[in-house]
């Protein structure tokens, strides 16, 4: 049951192990739209909250391929079509000479694409999340671990989540306003 004015239900944990265990329970219970807020990377959480991450390497690869084609055919167009010059009898399509620039532009596109995708996937630029309104949330950057199930999850159920979080040993549970 989703309530319009609610963003989600957040729970605060004191250890990385506790938040990982809770995330595993939440996932096993069928919830999909949840996010963790931790002071440092917790590797096990990555795998539990994955899904979207698979797309990023693939996207970077596609950007790299586009960069490769752009880099190569830009030089091909300049040297063969737009302004052909005979350099010491070498062929106009001197592809070995295009190599370094093609490589550089491949890298620029891949890295630029990665940065852009990272920006968009993280919903930047934004100054905070609705969780910022919880008192003490700033400790997510110091020593506390937060887990928030969003109200847009199809299985969202306030009472059930509270019960789950409590069973997982949550230090504190808060409802987050949208």
């Amino acid at each position: 049951m989703s309530t319009p004015e609610l963003y989600g239900i957040a729970a605060e944990f004191t250890t990385a192990e506790a938040v990982t265990a809770a995330a595993r329970h939440i996932k096993n219970a069928g919830f999909r739209r949840f996010e963790a807020y931790t002071p440092m990377p917790v590797e096990a959480l990555d795998e539990l909250i994955a899904g979207k991450q698979v797309a990023l390497p693939l996207l970077i690869f596609c950007f790299g391929c586009i960069g490769f084609l752009v880099g190569f055919f830009m030089q091909y167009y300049l040297a063969v079509v737009d302004y052909p010059i005979n350099v010491g009898g070498r062929p106009l399509n001197s592809w070995p000479a295009f190599g370094p620039i093609t490589f550089e532009i491949t890298v620029v596109f891949a890295v630029g694409g990665a940065f852009l995708a990272w920006f968009i996937f993280n919903r930047l630029p934004r100054l905070g999340t609705p969780l910022s309104a919880i008192p003490g949330f700033e400790r997510a950057t110091i020593d506390r671990y937060f887990l928030c199930v969003e109200a847009s999850d199809p299985r969202f159920d306030r009472a059930r989540l509270r019960w789950l979080f409590e069973r997982c040993g949550a230090h504190r549970i808060a409802e987050v306003a949208a």
Partner: peptide
């Protein structure tokens, strides 16, 4: 590739 490029370009 770099060896090939240099030698190919110098010819």
């Amino acid at each position: 590739f770099m060896q090939f490029l240099i030698i190919w370009e110098e010819d």
